[in-house]
Design a protein around this nucleic acid. Structure first.
Lengths: 207, 207
DNA sequence: GTCTATACTGAGATAGAC
DNA sequence: GTCTATCTCAGTATAGAC
């Protein structure tokens, strides 16, 4: 990897995380990186592809950490399946605690939030997601596939929203340590997973 | 309201919901609406202000419905406070079931997701949010303010993510009726709210 | 008051010289 | 590999027709 390419990736990670994807122009990035505009298109092809590369550079280690944690928790629980809490912790903690790099955490939150998770990244994440879904199926054998999929969807939403700047939270609460935030989020989504469904009646709203 | 202004609002609501805010150009909107480009700036000032007006046009009735439901549920439960489930249902259902207008539902999801909830809309939503937070405080008197704020934050994330196109869900599950989705989401976030916090130990990840 | 024609600035992208 | 110049299209601003 050339020096120029490296500088572009670093600047892009910082600026995308700080201001979001749309709000960051390639001209901001070249100013921060001290390179020429065309260099971005030479090395990456497009702004979208640059985002892909920024994500993929760190997503690999992040997902490896997730899978390692899941393996460990499953070993510790054997022969029983790992608990819902542990499985969700293995998925969530590496996303928030990744090597003390808050820029990347914010970036991942923004990428989820802006609906930009690109196909390339999606492909990269799919094996990890599949592995976690099958772990959850073992932990919750009575749950239907549709219900599991929805609960995973809700959980991803809660996680993504948490990764972005939490402006809705009191300033005080927002300054809690990442460890505490992980615990709060894991407890919340675990409660959601364990909650029973009540599908036997119309919603009250339509009475 | 002039005919031109009306046409612009309708076209903007449809296109913002369909393709997102950033991906929709003002020139797309004027083509759909059959008006002149400058008419947008005459009537609305800017693209951002146009989005504000699109949201405010329907947010008022939506929040009114939320508050009406909350009032009814609180009356029915009196003298006890309304249950967490009912409070959350009163908040979530109108966002998803709003007058059979899936375009606006998608738009609200995208606005939350792209982090665009503009200040004007924020001001418009704040009284409703405050009303619901105080209802939740009554339903969960033992919960600390920080914990309640975080759980509301997680719930908003799950809801916003759900409003967007649920590509991560199986095609089958995605075609469930809005009623069922409301029930699933209410059950999920209610479980999250009722889940106990376990703040008494370090996360396992750091061992 | 409403709307149109036109132009300005900055965005992402590309071709070609070096 | 890198840089200059240029293209198209975005949001925006304004002058003026009706």
């Amino acid at each position: 990897m050339t020096y120029t390419k490296q500088r572009i990736l670093d600047a892009a990670e910082e600026l995308f995380g700080e201001h979001g994807y749309s709000a960051t122009s390639l001209r901001h990035i070249i100013a921060e990186a001290g390179v020429n505009l065309a260099a971005i298109h030479y090395h990456f092809g497009s702004k979208q592809d640059l985002l892909d590369q920024v994500i993929l550079r760190k997503a690999g280690p992040m997902n490896a950490r997730r899978l390692a944690l899941l393996d460990r928790f499953e070993e510790e629980a054997a022969p029983e399946p790992a608990s819902v809490e542990k499985i969700l912790e293995a998925f969530i903690a590496p996303a928030i605690l990744i090597d003390k790099s808050p820029e990347f955490v914010k970036l991942m939150g923004r990428v989820h939030a802006e609906g930009l998770m690109p196909e390339i990244a999606q492909r990269n994440f799919q094996p990890t997601i599949d592995r976690f879904l099958s772990a959850l199926r073992r932990a919750l054998p009575q749950m239907t596939a549709a219900e599991l999929a929805w609960k995973a969807h809700f959980s991803l939403g809660a996680m993504a929203h948490t990764l972005t700047v939490p402006t809705e939270i009191d300033a005080q609460a927002a300054h809690e340590s990442p460890d505490v935030i992980v615990q709060r989020l894991v407890a919340f989504v675990s409660g959601g997973f364990r909650a029973p469904v009540t599908m036997d009646k119309q919603t009250e709203v339509n009475r």
